[in-house]
């Protein structure tokens, strides 16, 4: 049997060139540049610079504030990922059971997906407005004196809430289509074996959803780490103050607000390493336990 292939060696290379050059220009080049400037302290205008070796890294690792931001980022990412996935799964399972009007529910639940993160953040700022925000009043009615932008934990809760709200629809779509692709015969067989719908979900549906779930886990961690930037930026109203922030937002605050190019580059290199480690961990350890059909 003859496998299909290119007759010349140049054609495939030529076809790959656009994609490769995009990766090189927009990923490798800036990454290498960031690594280089992380070893320097330089005047933002580009006049003076001093080679400082690993000083940018050591001052970050010895900074208690950077550690606080790291801890917050881990908690934030864990909570946003967990709640986005759990809520979406719950909604998807419930929506999957509904036959009539399913399309309407689906559309309504997907709607939020179209909201851009900064807009979501802005809606959050309005809902939690200190003097007239409806959610602030709701919190007050249960005795929680909610103060966005003043109290660290209150601001963090608002950020998590808005980020989850924004992400649930994406997860919902994937979970719902995952659920609907489970063959009817499998479900019927399970129905005979186990009468408890709760038991059936954990024994049959959940494992079959695992590939979708794993994919969504990666997507959601990436979202919580990086894409929540817009939500955080609007919710702190451009003033970091004593508000919570994630590692990505700190790269922006130090680099683009504070003009500390060296320190900010070192932070982005640390983030790159973190993401690399996370990806390797996920694919090496977690994916082995997932069975694709």
């Amino acid at each position: 049997m003859k496998s299909a292939g290119f007759t010349t060696r140049w054609l495939p290379i030529l076809l790959l060139v656009p994609q490769l050059s995009i990766i090189a220009i927009f990923f490798y080049w800036p990454a290498i540049y960031a690594m280089q400037s992380s070893f320097y302290l330089q005047d933002p205008f580009g006049f003076g610079s001093t080679f400082v070796g690993l000083e940018n890294y050591s001052s970050l690792l010895s900074s208690s504030e950077y550690m606080k931001v790291t801890r917050f980022t881990v908690v934030f990412t864990a909570l946003v990922t967990f709640f986005s996935l759990a809520l979406a799964l719950l909604l998807a399972v419930k929506a999957d059971n509904v036959l009539r009007g399913a399309k309407t529910y689906r559309t309504l639940l997907m709607w939020v997906y179209a909201v851009a993160p900064p807009v979501a953040g802005f809606i959050g700022v309005m809902m939690f407005n200190q003097s007239w925000g409806p959610l602030t009043e709701l919190a007050r009615s249960i005795g929680w004196d909610f103060k966005l932008g003043v109290n660290f934990n209150d601001t963090a809760s608002a950020m998590i809430l808005v980020s989850v709200w924004k992400q649930v629809p994406v997860n919902f779509i994937f979970f719902l289509s995952g659920l609907q692709s489970i063959p009817k015969s499998v479900r019927e067989a399970a129905l005979i074996d186990n009468r408890s719908s709760f038991g059936r979900f954990w024994d049959v549906t959940f494992p079959l959803l695992a590939p979708t779930g794993f994919f969504l886990l990666i997507i959601n961690i990436t979202y919580s780490l990086f894409d929540t930037f817009g939500v955080i930026d609007t919710m702190v109203k451009g003033e970091p103050g004593n508000n919570p922030m994630t590692l990505v937002y700190k790269v922006y605050v130090d680099g683009f607000r504070g003009n500390d190019l060296g320190g900010s580059s070192a932070q982005s290199v640390i983030l790159m390493v973190l993401v690399l480690a996370l990806t390797i961990f996920q694919f090496r350890l977690v994916e082995r336990r997932i069975h694709y059909t």
């Binding site: 504030e65 003043v150 109290n151 003033e239 004593n242 605050v253 003009n259 500390d260």
Partner: peptide
């Protein structure tokens, strides 16, 4: 100084909360 101000704002916020 932008960063120094950010440090001040952060610590003052912590004093007041």
């Amino acid at each position: 100084y932008v960063q120094i101000r950010d440090v001040m704002n952060r610590e003052y916020g912590r004093i007041l909360t």
